[in-house]
């Protein structure tokens, strides 16, 4: 079976480490970025099979900016955005892609999630 490559961007060192470990533990290859900027650079010459972005990095909406970029390159690449926003500020995003055209992500999930949830989402989206 061909190994799928997942791009992970998070400016929190620990969350990056954790997500990477879990994703690799599940048998995927990873490319990591610790900022929006370095994720952008990676996207210039790499096409991952899936991307996981932290929502807030240098910008409040870094995750969305990166997501848009991914979809420009190839709209078939699934994007998962992780955020603490929903739980901490009570803000709520529409995660159904068909309803909200401005948010170009396939899933938005809470930070501090059980990583099992992230893995099953990845599996779903890579089908």
């Amino acid at each position: 079976m061909e190994e799928k490559t997942i791009l992970i961007a998070d400016d929190d060192m620990d969350l990056l480490e954790q997500t990477t470990a879990v994703v690799e533990g599940a048998g995927y290859k990873t490319i990591t970025a610790d900022s929006e900027k370095s994720a952008m650079e990676i996207l210039e010459n790499t096409q991952p099979d899936l991307a996981i972005f932290d929502l807030m990095m240098e910008n409040m909406d870094s995750g969305f900016i990166l997501s848009r970029k991914v979809k420009e390159i190839n709209h078939k690449i699934p994007v998962i955005i992780v955020t603490a926003v929903t739980s901490e500020t009570g803000l709520h995003f529409e995660t159904d892609n068909t309803k909200s055209s401005w948010i170009k992500a396939d899933a938005i999930i809470n930070k501090g999630i059980r990583y099992e949830q992230l893995l099953s989402k990845i599996e779903d989206l890579l089908k």
Binding site: D14, L15, Q18, A21, V22, E24, G25, A26, G112, R114, Y115, E116
Partner: peptide, 11 residues
């Protein structure tokens, strides 16, 4: 987060 991962041997 780390403990959960270690606990479930997710890595």
């Amino acid at each position: 987060g780390y403990l959960r991962i270690i606990d479930k041997r997710m890595a």
